[in-house]
Nucleic acid binder design. Sequence first.
DNA 1: ACCGGAAGTTAACCTGGGTGAACGAATGAC
DNA 2: GTCATTCGTTCACCCAGGTTAACTTCCGGT
Lengths: 190, 190
Amino acid sequence: MESLIRAIKECIHLSPEEDNIISELFTELDLPAGDYFLEEGKICRHVAFIHKGLLRYYINDNGNERTMFFSRENEFVCNYLSFLPQRPSDKSIQALEDSRLYIISYENLQRFYSKVKEGEKFGRLAIEQVFLSAIQQLDSLYTDPPALRYQQFLTAYPDLVQRIPQYYIASYVGIKPQSLSRIRKRIAGG
Amino acid sequence: MESLIRAIKECIHLSPEEDNIISELFTELDLPAGDYFLEEGKICRHVAFIHKGLLRYYINDNGNERTMFFSRENEFVCNYLSFLPQRPSDKSIQALEDSRLYIISYENLQRFYSKVKEGEKFGRLAIEQVFLSAIQQLDSLYTDPPALRYQQFLTAYPDLVQRIPQYYIASYVGIKPQSLSRIRKRIAGG
DNA sequence: ACCGGAAGTTAACCTGGGTGAACGAATGAC
DNA sequence: GTCATTCGTTCACCCAGGTTAACTTCCGGT
């Protein structure tokens, strides 16, 4: 769990005993490609730290899947909208590649807050971070036209282009695969 | 500042001395209708608690104003995307009615976190709250078609319908005033 | 009573994504 | 080698919001 502890130490100080506490509060979870960390309708019971792998976070809107974002190594992933109030989730989180996660339950997170001296501070900083990136994602989704979002995706995730099918990219851009084809043609042709 | 302290006490316990600390960390700001709490391009230096009034939070996207949400009595308002990293804001926050705010600077908020025993906890809970409602707003903006968003607005803010011009509602729904007219006609006619 | 501006409506036309279907290429199973 | 599946592309058609502009209504100022 060194990668996790290293990530936490970028925000707060941890004593050696606290390193141990954290190791006990988190558990390891291997998720094969295609499996779900969180399924729609279920309650998000854990926050996950991605040690290795790639996940996508999406909403199923009447059979229309819309990918909000992709999450990778050294990022925390969770549907806070389900996790914080412990209510059923309207989103799903799926592994796109074989992934190794370190997960912490809601109850253990409360222990983390109370047992780790700067735990509350870390909780605040972590959620601020998640909050900012979520807002930025959604802002872009709201503001930027599909063609621009596609080009932003290409520059932001150049490696993913080769690793995931194009319909996931379309889903991320917010359009149908056919429309993405049109846009690609428009961009290429002129 | 009773309304503010009452709102904080709904989340954490405050000693009488802490009541005083808070009164000193916040300052009062009266904002006439039309004036700005935050202007695009400037850094958001304060978090505001709305004692009285109505504000709108919007982004100017190439002359196209898009209202993200309206904020009213007993709510906190702030562009955290500008406030937390102390970077220039791409959003504006404008008073739609004469408003009275209690505001706290970034520096004083850090003092709040350190001087008030459960300050960090409050910071975490407050940002969780803001985070959840922001995500819900943006989710809806992303997922729901304009006609539905308009009807949701009518049920969520029945009083605002009478108090604000229709082009602000259109801006909130995510369309032009002309299109809102069409939708209203469609809904009415059949 | 008159004028001017702001707000809302209507209409004609444009644009871009959705829909459904057909097609081609690549992949994998047997 | 053959067949089926999956994925991407292309096309014709549809629809809803954007654009532009004209028109009405309402209100305030004088």
